[in-house]
Simulated assay, not measured.
Amino acid sequence: MSSPRNPNPRAANELKLAPSVDLPRYMGRWYIIANIPYFAEKDFVGSYAEWKLRDDGKIDDSYYAHKNSFDAPLKHYQFTDSVVPGSNNADWSVRIFWPIYASQKTLYVDDDYQYTIIGYSDRKLGWIFARSPNISDAKYRELLGRLDEMGYDTSRFRRVPQTPDQIGKPGFHSPGEKD
């Protein structure tokens, strides 16, 4: 299934990485506030990532989430990331499993390292992360505005439920829902 055409007039512009990422400050837990739904994260709630800088310079990338319900067991997936040389730590190569790699591009991180936006050059995938599992609607709209400026079709983003009461609310992923 192909993605719908991106109506954003800035979609053809080059996607720019964050100017630089301070890796030690970037490490730790990041909650997935929103993303463009896709098969690998479909039906997950309470999703978060934990990044840990290793002594060899690589990054341990742990993904945690519950499938369909907060009552479901917490699933854990482990990846290994490497910083792409010359990217000021903003572009990572993620080893999904050998020999499959994906790119993880940090497009924005705020000065306090509380919010970050990660995406792909084709803008078919994107994520909003925060240090806290819940953010204000105003902050969410601000981050969507940044994605819009970057040429993303922000209508495709859905919030990831981080608490049981968010399941089924407008604008959130609905586990079990057909694409």
Rank of each mutant, 00 (worst) to 15 (best):
F70H: 11
D71C: 03
A72V: 04
L74F: 00
K75T: 10
H76E: 14
H76G: 07
H76F: 12
Q78H: 11
T80P: 02
T80C: 11
D81M: 09
D81I: 08
S82I: 07
V83Y: 01
V84F: 09
P85C: 02
G86C: 07
G86R: 02
G86P: 01
G86E: 02
G86L: 03
S87P: 05
N89L: 10
N89G: 09
A90Y: 12
D91K: 15
W92V: 00
V94L: 15
R95A: 05
R95D: 04
I96T: 09
F97R: 02
F97Q: 02
F97E: 01
P99W: 02
I100M: 01
Y101D: 03
Y101V: 07
Y101S: 07
A102E: 10
A102I: 05
S103P: 02
S103L: 05
Q104N: 15
Q104L: 13
T106A: 13
T106P: 06
L107W: 04
Y108W: 02
V109M: 09
D110Q: 01
D110W: 03
D110K: 01
D111S: 14
D111K: 14
D111C: 04
Y113L: 08
Y113H: 00
Q114C: 06
Y115C: 11
Y115R: 09
T116G: 11
I117S: 07
I118T: 11
I118E: 12
I118S: 08
G119V: 09
Y120F: 12
D122H: 10
D122I: 03
D122Q: 10
L125T: 12
G126M: 07
W127P: 05
I128H: 09
I128D: 08
F129H: 13
A130W: 11
A130P: 06
R131I: 02
N134F: 05
N134D: 12
N134E: 15
I135H: 07
A138S: 13
A138L: 13
K139F: 09
Y140F: 14
R141E: 15
R141V: 11
E142K: 03
E142Q: 12
L144S: 06
L144Q: 03
R146I: 15
R146Q: 12
L147R: 03
D148C: 04
D148H: 14
E149T: 14
M150P: 10
Y152L: 09
D153S: 02
T154P: 03
S155R: 12
R156I: 03
F157T: 06
F157C: 08
R158Y: 13
R158F: 13
R159T: 00
R159W: 00
V160S: 04
V160L: 06
P161D: 09
Q162Y: 09
Q162S: 08
T163N: 15
